[in-house]
C-alpha cells in the first residue's frame, strides 16, 4: 500500500470538507468582521438533522439515494434557517456595540447550540444505520471509496456554484459591495441586512452539507464535533486569507493535506514519540505559523489599516 498516495487522497477528502466550512467563516468575516464561533456547531446540527432524517426515510422504506438527497435537503433547510436566526437574534442587535460584545455573544451561541443538541439528541456518539458499505477501488496502491469521490466532487461543484453566485449574480454583486463598504452599499440602495442574512444562509447551507459529509465519512455524529472542525476550518480560512472566498477553498484543501500527511508520517519522523493522536495539533501549529509569517494569508490582501 502506498502510504503517501493514500494520505493525499484522505487529505483531499478532509480538505474538501474544511473548505466548505471555511467558506462560511470567511464570508461572514468578510462582511461583518466577526468570527462566528457558532459556525462549527451549525455543521454539527447539519449532521444530526441529516442523521435523523436519514434514519426516518430509510425506516419508511425509501431507497438510499433518495433518502440521502432528502436528508441533505432537510439539513440544508434546517441549518439555513438556524444561521439566519443566529444572525438576526444574536449578532444584528450588536452591530454597533463594542467589538468584544459580538465575540462573546458568538461563543455563547456556540455553547448554547451544543447543549441544546446534547439535550435534544444525545451526548453519546450517534452512529449511521449499518446500511452503508461504500464500494472501494484500488488506485496505484491506495484505496478510494465511492463516498470519498462523491465528497470531493460535490464539494467542487458547490464551490464552483458559489464562485458563480458571487461573481455572476446580482446578489453576489451586492455581497461584494457590502463587504467593501456596508455604509456606502446601503446608500446605493442595497438592503445590507438582507445581504448579510443571505450570507449566513449560504454559509450555513454549505455547513449543513459539510455536516452530512462528515457524518457519512466517519459514520457518527456527536454534539461536540463542530468545535474542532470549526477551529480547523477557521484556520483554513486564515491560511487562505480571511475574507477571500478562493482563499478559503485553497486553505481548506491545503490544511486537509497537511494534516493528513503530518499525522500519517509523524510517527516515522519522531521515532514513535508522537503518534497520530496529536493530529489536532497540526492545524493549530499552522494557524500560529500563518499568523507569524503571513498574517494576510495566501490569497489575502494585506490588511490596509483604517483610521
Amino acid at each position: 500500500m502506498d502510504i503517501f498516495l493514500q494520505q493525499v487522497i484522505n487529505g483531499l477528502v478532509l480538505g474538501s470538507v474544511y473548505a466548505l466550512v471555511a467558506l462560511g467563516y470567511t464570508m461572514v468575516y468578510g462582511i461583518l468582521g466577526l468570527i462566528n464561533f457558532a459556525h462549527g456547531d451549525v455543521v454539527m446540527v447539519g449532521a444530526f438533522t441529516g442523521l435523523a432524517l436519514l434514519k426516518a426515510l430509510l425506516a419508511a422504506g425509501t431507497g438510499l439515494p433518495i433518502a440521502l438527497a432528502g436528508a441533505a435537503l432537510g439539513a440544508v433547510l434546517a441549518c439555513g434557517l438556524l444561521g439566519v436566526a443566529i444572525e438576526r437574534i444574536a449578532y444584528r442587535p450588536l452591530r454597533h456595540a463594542p467589538r468584544l460584545a459580538p465575540l462573546i455573544t458568538a461563543i455563547g451561541v456556540s455553547i448554547l447550540i451544543q447543549y441544546v443538541a446534547a439535550i435534544l439528541w444525545s451526548k453519546q456518539y450517534l452512529a449511521l444505520p449499518a446500511a452503508f458499505t461504500p464500494a472501494t477501488w484500488q488506485i496505484g496502491g491506495a484505496s478510494v471509496t465511492d463516498l470519498q469521490v462523491l465528497i470531493v466532487l460535490l464539494a467542487g461543484v458547490l464551490m464552483a456554484a458559489l464562485l458563480w453566485l458571487i461573481h455572476g449574480t446580482k446578489l453576489g454583486c451586492a455581497m461584494r459591495a457590502t463587504e467593501q463598504n456596508a455604509e456606502v452599499a446601503g446608500l446605493m440602495g442595497i438592503n445590507t441586512n438582507r445581504v448579510i442574512a443571505a450570507t449566513f444562509l449560504i454559509g450555513s447551507a454549505l455547513a449543513a452539507l459539510a455536516g452530512i459529509m462528515v457524518l457519512l465519512y466517519y459514520g457518527v455524529a456527536h454534539y461536540f464535533m463542530g468545535f474542532m472542525l470549526g477551529l480547523k476550518a477557521f484556520t483554513a480560512a486564515v491560511l487562505g486569507g480571511i475574507g477571500s472566498v478562493p482563499g478559503a477553498m485553497l486553505g481548506g484543501l491545503m490544511l486537509g493535506l497537511i494534516e493528513s500527511l503530518a499525522s500519517g508520517y509523524i510517527g516515522d519522523f519522531t521515532g514513535g514519540v508522537f503518534g497520530s493522536n496529536y493530529r489536532d495539533v497540526f492545524a493549530f501549529i499552522v494557524l500560529i505559523l500563518v499568523l507569524v509569517l503571513r498574517p494576510a494569508g495566501l490569497l489575502g490582501k494585506a490588511q490596509g489599516e483604517r483610521a
Partner: peptide
C-alpha cells in the same frame, strides 16, 4: 451539568444584549 452549560451560553448572549 448540561443545564449549567445551557445557562452559561444563554447568559453570555443575554448579558451582551
Amino acid at each position: 451539568a448540561d443545564l449549567r452549560m445551557l445557562l452559561f451560553g444563554l447568559a453570555l448572549v443575554l448579558m451582551m444584549r
